[in-house]
């Protein structure tokens, strides 16, 4: 397949199908994330970069027999390795015997949050999530460093860029109706994550998707008036800072780093508050990193348009 556009669309469809498979495997939170990230943002970013590179792949006559051989050998070895694995769906597999029962049985008493995924994510494995948030933050910085925008382009673009879809009246009207609801849904996902599937990661991505939709329809300069690049850059750092700050406050109050029991007099209330704040931090970072990445790609397109 030499049309990369089709490749990218197919990978988006693949993500959506795998999201429904995750749902079938009881992983509601993962399915939610995969649907919003894989089928939404990832496809969008790939399309945005396709705009900058050529859409068609060059034809090659080279036949990768060696690669095929390597792949088949690896596959045979991996399948041989699976013969010792526990069967699919068995309840007494080693995975289910170690920490999982503790999480499932005691999280209600210790943390008081029905969604165990949220409590494990934000409380039991809070360090882990802090690390992941930092990775996202770093990736955002990396993209910013790679795709810098000069001041000159910014000034030129203020006069010059019309939105790509200025004439699409129906799209604009429907989007105007949908965008506030998308943003509200993002906030619902953010703060309802304790009780149902959802949380900071999904909410951040959905929020960013709403803003990106707005940017695509109404132009980069219009949306930059509300979401200035410097403000978003500040917010990426603020999210991580909020996360780390909660940890430090816990230390100041006499606990360990990220030990929310000490945030309030009642440990369960403290845990609630801690999880809420930490998820908010994650949401802010994820949303602003996604927005920054998209904006940087779009700035590149603008720059190319007016350089030529």
């Amino acid at each position: 397949m030499s049309d990369l556009f089709a490749v990218v669309m197919l990978s988006g469809i693949y993500s959506l199908i795998s999201a429904s498979l995750f749902l079938d495997l009881d992983a509601v939170d993962v399915a939610f994330t995969e649907a919003s990230v894989g089928a939404g943002i990832s496809t969008l970013l790939m399309l945005a970069s396709l705009k900058l590179v050529s859409r068609y792949q060059k034809k090659t006559r080279y036949k990768p027999i060696l690669a095929f051989f390597v792949v088949v050998t690896t596959g045979a070895m991996l399948i041989y390795g699976t013969l010792d694995m526990p069967h699919f769906g068995t309840a007494d597999a080693p995975v289910h015997t170690h920490v999982a029962p503790r999480y499932l049985n005691e999280s209600m008493g210790e943390i008081g949050v029905p969604n165990v995924v949220t409590s494990v994510l934000a409380s039991y494995r809070g360090y882990d999530t802090l690390g992941e948030t930092l990775v996202i933050f770093t990736a955002g910085i990396g993209v910013m460093a790679l795709l810098m925008v000069s001041k000159q382009t910014k000034q030129e673009s203020k006069k010059l860029i019309p939105a790509d879809m200025q004439q699409q009246i129906i799209l604009r009207i429907v989007a105007k109706m949908m965008i506030p609801l998308i943003l509200m849904f993002a906030l619902y996902v953010q703060f309802h994550g304790d009780y149902g599937p959802g949380g900071g990661f999904q909410a951040g991505v959905i929020f960013a998707a709403g803003i990106i939709l707005y940017t695509m329809l109404f132009g980069l300069s219009t949306s930059q008036e509300v979401f200035k690049a410097t403000t978003i850059e500040l917010f990426t750092a603020a999210g991580v800072l909020l996360y780390g700050g909660v940890g430090v406050v816990c230390m100041l109050l006499g606990g360990n780093f990220l030990d929310y029991d000490f945030l309030k007099h009642d440990p369960v209330h403290g845990q609630h508050l801690g999880i809420l704040l930490v998820e908010l931090g994650v949401g802010i970072t994820v949303a602003s990193v996604m927005m920054i990445i998209f904006f940087k790609f779009t700035w590149r397109t603008v720059k190319h348009k007016y350089k030529k």
Binding site: A27, V37, L121, V286
Partner: peptide, 14 residues
């Protein structure tokens, strides 16, 4: 088991 869900959720966004 909720543990793999947590790991993968963050892995997707990363």
């Amino acid at each position: 088991n909720p543990l793999p869900h947590v790991l993968i959720l963050t892995a997707i966004v990363v």
